[in-house]
Each structure stands twice: as C-alpha cells, then as structure tokens.
Design a protein around this nucleic acid. Structure first.
Length: 416
RNA sequence: GCGAUCGUAGCUCAGUUGGUUAGAGCGCCGGUUUGUGGUACCGGAGGUCGGGGGUUCGAGACCCCUCGAUCGCCCCA
C-alpha cells in the first residue's frame, strides 16, 4: 500500500448509513407525503446563490450572515454563498421567475444547508432541512395551516409527545418596533445587571436577550415589557385568529412571550417546536411570518409564512422499526446453477419480491450470508436440483426444507 | 469564537505511581462439518496507541502544538 495520508471528512459533515439513514429517509418521506396532502408543490432551488440573497434578507448583523456563511468568490469574481437556509433562496426564486402570478403559492423543499459553526450534537456544518413556505398570503389561515401541517408531521413520525409547540407573536412592523424600543430602554436602565453576552446583544439583537440562559438575565426578563402591551389592534386580532384556529384544529400549543427568532425578517407569528431530548439543540422545527423579506429582495410587498425543521434533529428522535430482510436469498452452487439463479433472481425482482443472491464462499458461507441478511427463505440450487428442474427452498425461520419446481418459485415465494 | 472532557484493533472498551514482545469482548478469516444458517469448541489475521514535536536511560501514559468527536456557552433547524 502506498504511504498516503487518507484525507478526513470535513469537520461538521457526516456520512450517514444504516439505522441513521433509515431515520433520515423516514423523515424526508413523511414530509414529502404530508406536503402533498396539504397541497404544497415541491421546489428545487440552487445550493449556491449570490451572497446578497442572504445578506439582504436575513439581516447583515445576524450571526448567520456575519460569521457563519460559506462565502467565496467564484472564478468569474462573483460573490457566491452556500445557502445557510431555504427561505431567502425560495423568495428569490419567487421573484426572478415571476411566480407572483401563482400567489398564494405553497412550496416545500428539502436538502443540504451550510453554516460555519462549531459542531456539536444536532448541529453540523452541512445539515439538512425540510422546509414549507406559503408566499403571497396575508391571512392568518396560512399561518395556521402550516402549523397544523407541522403538527401532523411530528405526529406521523411519532415524536409529538416529546415536542411542544411554543407560540408567540412579534406583531406587525409598527408593534415590533415599538416593543423593541421599549425593550432597549428597559435593558439600558438595567445594563449593570445584564450578562456579558446580553450586553453584547443589546446593540445587535436586543430581542434575543429574552432567550438568554443566564439566571440574572432571566430574572430581569420577567419584568421586561412584553409584546402584548405594544400590539396594534390589527396585530392582536391576527394573533387571536391564529390561536383560535389552532384550537379548532386540535393542535396543542403554549404561549411563550419570550420566544423571538434570530433572523430579522420575522413578523407576527413566530413559533418553535421544542424538545428537551436533544440537549442544547432543543428546537426541532421553527419558523414564522416574514412579510418584509420579499421587499428586502427588491420585490413588491408580499406577505409570507414558513417553517423549517432540521432533518438530523428529527431523525435522532425518531424510532424506525428495523426493516425486514429479503423474502428470499438465492444460493447457487456451480456455474450452471449461477446462470439459473440469475434468471430466477430477475424473475423474483420483476415480480416485486425482495430478493438477493449469496454468491461468495462455500455453502456454509452462503447460508450464513442469507441468515445475516435475515432472509425468510434460502433457495438452494445445485446440479442435482437443476437436473430435476427444481430448487431446494429452505425456510430459515422454521428450518423446514422443501423442493420446488423452478418455474413455480415466484408463486411459492409469494405464498410463504 | 470561548470553556470542559475525550481520542488505544473494523466496533465497544481495559491498560495500575512512566518499565520487556499493548490486552479483552464482539466482528472478521480458517477448522471441527469438502451441499445446509442461527449454537458450541479450537486456531488465526488485524494496532506507526488521532497526527507532530518535546521531557526521559525508557512514553499509550507526562508537557506543548495540531486535527477530530462529545458536552456546555454562543447561535440556530
């Protein structure tokens, strides 16, 4: 062997097989199915976008934009960014393709995202999300529909009992700005008791202080102004209609007045489905309304709502039952038998029977292989059987063995 | 970006205050069984102890650097 240092996988990336892959696929498949039921169209959007797509929409001062994006100049000198989230790219697609004509549009997507963060459990540099957006709908029903859909998804993948829907409103721009100002004033007055991190947040993202895990901050937040006192009548009404519809639909939720979202574009409804089973990475699905985003990208004022969920995080909570082994494993012995086995194997598979072949080693090895794969039947073909036009079929669960005409094997396997 | 813990065989781990040829279980390969799996018994292969440097007569163990993982902060899905 050449003395070459094998390159490692890039930090924060992972290779997913076996049970983890099963769980991952289960989440994606459930999402695809459910999004069809809810009338969403799947979209594919690029993994790379012009950097400005994200810089303008997420907010220049957010952590995602200011220090977590994979940004580089391509060979033509354009600034390109690997998408750190879906919403901005989908909004860009909405504008550049003239999809306004289809509004309101219900779109869903899934795929890899990239953020340059310190990896830990449930947090990776290449990670994957499922994503659902409704663009061009200002009605509270759009918010509700997305939440009902999220709730159904979590139920269907079987993790709803460990996850709680936290709901809040950030109000319209007017409410949000007034509240934000009141918060700044309040925290300015108490800046001596703020933690170092929160002092930092005071300039960049004061709403986030409400999310602080520092005990001193938490205490301070109890008496901080809450959004309810700053909501306009319209904003109040909007939120009331969302919560009422959720109750109508039987979706459980709790009000969390300290829930704010990290990205600048959120207005009105903000929500997170939170679990305590993933340590620091408790948010499993999150989103809200982003009425201002499309304008930030140079489009006409367009209301929109959406959410995204981390596939890895969901997959870690999911319990996928071990899938069955093949219905049959062929065990040919000798060259003639091999040819016969290829014919049988093709025949089985064309009849939608899960089948495989053990073609290495001696008889014992091949039987072991069939056993390890958890096959129901082993179909043994040697020269003796071949001469009689038969195969020996052994039931690996009961241990019983019978012979079967080769042209009857498909029927035989189907019946057992 | 900050703090803590960790990194020994394919996997999970043991390795005493630094002391000869670094161990176990599982897995893998072979045999008991040259056409019959799961069980059992016997044998075997497999390690530059994450990487680099240093201290020492001697380093898997101690020190420094580096890479990676995990946990927390931060951030977020």
């Amino acid at each position: 062997m050449a003395n070459i240092q094998t390159p490692n996988a890039v930090r924060g990336t992972q290779d997913i097989i076996a049970a983890a892959q099963e769980s991952f696929a289960h989440v994606v498949q459930s999402f695809e199915r459910i999004s069809r039921y809810y009338g969403f169209d799947m979209v594919q959007v690029p993994v790379i976008e012009q950097t400005s797509v994200f810089a303008r929409s997420l907010g220049e001062s957010t952590d995602v934009v200011s220090k977590e994006m994979y940004t580089f100049d391509d060979r033509g000198g354009d600034s390109i960014t690997l998408r750190p989230e879906f919403t901005a790219g989908i909004s860009r697609a909405f504008l550049t393709n003239g999809w306004q004509q289809h509004a309101p549009m219900k779109l869903s997507a899934h795929g890899p995202l990239f953020r340059y963060e310190r990896p830990q459990k449930g947090r990776y540099r290449q990670f994957h999300q499922i994503d659902a957006e409704i663009i061009g709908a200002a009605e509270p029903f759009a918010d509700t529909e997305l939440l009902i859909m999220a709730d159904q998804l979590l139920r269907e993948i079987g993790i709803d009992d460990g996850v709680t829907l936290n709901l809040n409103t950030l109000g319209d721009s007017e409410s949000r700005d007034a509240w934000r100002q009141a918060l700044i004033t309040y925290f300015q007055d108490h800046r001596n008791s703020l933690s170092k991190e929160s002092l930092n947040r005071l300039d960049r993202n004061p709403l986030r202080i409400l999310d602080s895990k520092d005990d001193g901050d938490k205490k301070l937040c109890q008496d901080a102004p809450i959004i309810d006192d700053y909501l306009t009548n319209e904003a109040q009404d909007f939120f009331a209609r969302v919560t009422q519809s959720l109750d109508t639909a039987g979706v459980d939720w709790i009000r969390n007045t300290r829930l704010v979202r990290g990205l600048d574009y959120y207005r009105h409804t903000a929500f997170e489905f939170i679990t305590d089973r993933l340590g620091a990475q408790g948010t499993v699905l999150g989103g809200g309304r982003y009425d201002g985003l499309i304008e930030n990208l140079g489009g006409a004022s367009t209301p929109a709502v959406g959410w995204a969920a981390g596939i890895e995080r969901l997959a870690m909570l999911v319990n996928v039952p071990e899938h069955n082994g093949p219905d049959a494993v062929l065990i040919p012995l000798g060259d003639r038998a091999m040819e016969a086995a290829i014919a049988i194997l093709s025949d089985l598979r064309r009849n939608y029977i899960i089948a495989d072949m053990a073609y290495k080693g001696n008889m014992k090895k091949r039987m072991q292989k069939a056993n390890i794969k958890k096959a129901k039947l082993a179909i043994i073909i040697g020269d003796d059987e071949l001469d009689r036009g038969e195969a020996a079929v052994k039931n690996l669960v009961s241990g019983e063995q019978q012979s079967c005409k080769i042209d009857m094997i498909v029927d035989y396997v189907k019946k057992s």
